[in-house]
Design a protein around this nucleic acid. Structure first.
Lengths: 193, 193, 193, 193
DNA sequence: GATGAATGAGATTTCATTCAT
DNA sequence: AATGAATGAAATCTCATTCAT
């Protein structure tokens, strides 16, 4: 096994452990045990417990950002682009629920994480651009503030994920595709002229 | 100063401290110092640090719930009721931003809290009833799941508050009223047939 | 027992433990156990392990400084003043060998301790003044640099203490008074014209 | 580069690192990095971190001891021999201040080291013999204990070095030769009848 | 010989909670 | 009711040493 494999194993173990117990309640030793490595190795690869969390965030948001950027390139028009974003985000839950659970739980709680991650800002900027484009071509209401719209959309998305995370909303396959449809219909529909 | 005054001062200090530093990072001593009382007095009035958080939640949600219930009684129809809820929640920010900051950061994230507070569930149930009523009278789309709609609405609201909390969205008086209008237009509008 | 008693007991325990094992090899728990208090109480009174060492130094040097200042006032002439200093320092060994052992072992090793303790500088300045005075009245050689002389005297004193600390020099009562005589005869004698 | 070169580079790096940070605060990795070799290589050549310190001492004292032995052979009489020793020790500072800094800081303080290094004892024995010889030929006071005299001399010397190490005493060329003269005048002069 | 990843015991420090006054 | 000293379990982090390659 290469050294980078170990680094990756630690990161993936951290996602599982932090997701299951929350960041604060997780001990570094839990992460090491879950990764199947010695305690000290976590500190060989990462400066501190918080640096592990940051690395998780950085990568997760990196992936999400790539997906959103793809949506921005691929989508024919603003509405379709936003629809793609909704799909991408909601399907992330299906693909890696632990990671989503972690992001949902901790991002809001660690304010200084946010300062360091401009990937978050870039994702929001991308959403804003989509809304603006929709206003330019007359699809969306002109008086809507694109920044506010981006935050509302993100909030609705995140809360549906939270509902799934907390087991308060059904998250079987059909519920997930229904949520996709209804989120698009409501949020994108609500922006239309 | 009466005993109840001290109890209240501790509670209000806790709101400020938890809001500023987050619950986990706050020490009991910080709360005591902020309240201007002796360390041990916090334990005289509350069982534990977590009991303080719980008391804060209970009271805050109580107030919010009362407001939502009032909206349900007062509003002429579903759309108007939801509009009132949006107003109430967003204005809570203006009235007590620290409390809102605390709720936003901790409520959906602290699993322990949720078990004990079915008030949260009641607020969501109230929102659900409003959506259902709107579907019954043909205002809202029939295929919309009321529960999902309630979560989306709450998420959009919460995220706008978060934007204000983090200083990422403008929160002057005119921005707040614009947000009120646009949130209603988008979310309630998006639910319409 | 008053709170300050406990603080003092911790300080005195620290002197014994640091003297016996050396600062680096001593654990905070050893100090607590020696003082007969709980682990955390050390941190109730002192910021850190190093702060304890600093407090010991500050007090010990304070006492020494006071003694040297007294010698400066009391002594009839420069030679007599220096003789008094030799006596004071060597007798500190008899009175509190652990404290002397600690000072001898650690002062040179913790360079940044020295920055914080200008008491050390004051003691040296006092010695310098004595030498200068002796030069002024023709007792000591004029070409001797008073600062250098102060350092030489201190070094010879400290080394005799070290010999005692390490058990390499005899330290029974008669050896101690012989050392007093010979140190004075050699060092003060060596400065004379 | 030969294997012995590497061994030597590690030793010289250790002198610099231990001198700069102190032995306890120095990490094995610091020494390896300073030497420009791999972490593990330090352990290839030396049993442990302490073995490195020991090797440094052994060599340094070996050199010093040789110099003192030379002084004992070369010097015409006791006073001249001691004068030579003073010169040798003080000039070691000019030649390798890091090494001197390290010896000054650690040698008399690390109890473990002393047991293993009887070279230290030999150097002191050599000084004692010189003093005794001086007493035998009537140069030095008969009542002076040769062992105590050796320790005093060493202490005065060491302290002047310490003053230079700490930057508290001037150590330019003229100050160094003045110190040589004055140390001899005071210490050796003080022993005379 | 040379490398640096891997190990884990052990240290400091934190802080919720208890308790004597 | 009110105080704040006292407790000690539990966490993070360090780093000398080992070992596979």
């Amino acid at each position: 096994m290469t050294a980078d494999d170990k680094r990756r194993r630690i990161l993936e173990a951290a996602v599982r452990v932090f997701a299951a117990q929350g960041y604060d309640a997780s001990r570094v030793g839990d992460v090491a045990k879950e990764a199947g490595v010695a305690y000290g190795l976590v500190y060989h690869y990462y400066e501190s417990k918080e640096a592990v969390l940051e690395a998780v965030f950085r990568e997760a948001w990196g992936r999400l950002l790539a997906a959103v950027a793809l949506a921005e390139e691929t989508g024919a028009n603003a509405a379709e682009q936003l629809e793609l974003v909704v799909k991408i985000v909601l399907r992330a839950w299906r693909d890696d629920p632990d990671l989503v659970r972690l992001l949902v739980r901790e991002v809001t709680r660690n304010p200084h994480i946010q300062d360091e991650l401009d990937e978050i800002g870039q994702a929001f900027a991308s959403l804003e651009r989509m809304v603006s484009r929709g206003q330019a071509d007359g699809t969306f209401r002109a008086e809507l503030d694109p920044k506010l719209a981006a935050w509302m959309l993100y909030g609705a998305l995140e809360e549906v994920l939270t509902g799934w995370v907390l087991g308060q909303l059904p998250d079987d396959a059909s519920a997930v595709s229904a949520a996709e449809r209804e989120l698009t219909a409501t949020m994108v529909g609500g922006m239309r002229t």
